[in-house]
Design a protein around this nucleic acid. Structure first.
Lengths: 135, 135, 135, 135
DNA sequence: GTGGTCTAGACCACG
DNA sequence: GTGGTCTAGACCACT
């Protein structure tokens, strides 16, 4: 079984951001859920080829957000009580399928991943301010 | 008419990366094309609320890539001869529409923009390695 | 052993250009080769009496050209795979000897270093356009 | 007859430095000598495709150095009394020939013009400090 | 302690 | 007034 985590060293997104967001996404997808054990800091660091401190930091930040629970001498566990925020399999498949189509479309059009990400970010932000505006 | 450029200071993406990608995207969309004048370094810096050096760096990097042309004492101009890389209006509208739908879907599902961007990045990378693998 | 790097503050050539060309030359001479560690940004800045940002810019530009490899938290390394572009000791000694003779000759004749450099630049450019013309 | 002056816009050497050094060199070579008329500021500006202010500045700087003489309403003339600093035709031909050989050699070896210029500059400076050291 | 980003501000080169 | 270089110094990301 291949790892569920992967880091893109060539991305301008910092390693710790990538890792943190991946864990969040796996939890939202329901792949990781309440009480599941996370890999040890060292194991994950070796697996990703990053420094152990980087993993430690991610775990610490996620703990501060109430997403993970660190138990000294035992391990790290998923600690996300908000069931409402978990995507259904159907939702995730829909999102995932759309992302794949979008990526293919952009690659055929000669856009870079960075341009797409920029567009996604802008659109997200606009969508938010639109919602606020409608209040 | 609002500015065509905007920076999200809360994003983990560095300011200069955001700006660079926006300019690239505007050129690919054909909004900016060969010979068009860019805002002056200082004007854009004020408009975005960033330091002039940051804009200078972006312009300089894009010049190194052959995307912009900087003329001392005159100004900065678009210098992108690759007509083939310009998206048609139809292509851009298609991409843009899909991005909007995707963003709405994710927001309803409780995903964060960072999780979506993470997903886009991973999907893009997999798509690339798939293509290579098929060779 | 004196430093391999030195900046001439009285030259009209910008500091970062001087440094960049020196590093390139040391690599072409084979003095620096694949995998060799470069001085840290801060150390080199102190050594040359310039600001750390200036060194950063040089390292960054050379990374963009594939000449150096910057590793965050680790250091900076030579990353020049083009073995073919390395001068032999014999070639370098020949060039170096001719330059010394030329400099001596010009100094005896009352030329300034700027005039010599101007002459070298013009000659180089003419030589190039001659080659193109012959095509 | 082609112009005796030429500017390389792609060089990192500022336009005014290139022009100033060329004029100096032509005087040292004896191509221009005491009392010879220089082109008018406007004519030279048009010929080189640079701004008239740039030429004006070069003429002004060279006047300050006693190299040129500006006569209002009349024109600009060479004003270099130091006969001793004029190269003989033989000296110039020797230098010129050596520069050509050197340039050819470097081009064959894969050096850039900037690397050669860097080497010339360093060698010149070392040669000077050697002379001082011997005092 | 490594490189990375950004700021504020000075002065230069050029039109 | 345009872009270009450089400085000093702050804070961040990562080992």
């Amino acid at each position: 079984m291949p790892s569920r985590f992967h880091i893109d060293r060539s991305s301008p997104r910092p390693v710790y951001v990538q890792l943190q967001d991946q864990i969040q996404l796996l939890i939202h997808r329901g792949v990781l859920s309440q009480g599941d054990p996370m890999p040890t800091v060292r194991a994950l660091a070796v697996e990703l080829g990053v420094n152990a401190n980087t993993v430690t930091r991610v775990y610490r930040d996620l703990q501060a957000q109430g997403v993970l629970r660190l138990e000294r001498g035992v391990g790290t566990f998923v600690d996300e009580p908000k069931e409402a925020q978990t995507l259904t399999t159907r939702e995730y498949q829909s999102i995932s399928k759309r992302v794949e189509e979008l990526v293919t479309l952009c690659q055929r059009s000669g856009l870079t991943s960075r341009e797409l990400i920029q567009l996604v970010g802008s659109t997200w932000k606009e969508s938010q301010s639109d919602s606020k505006g409608r209040k």
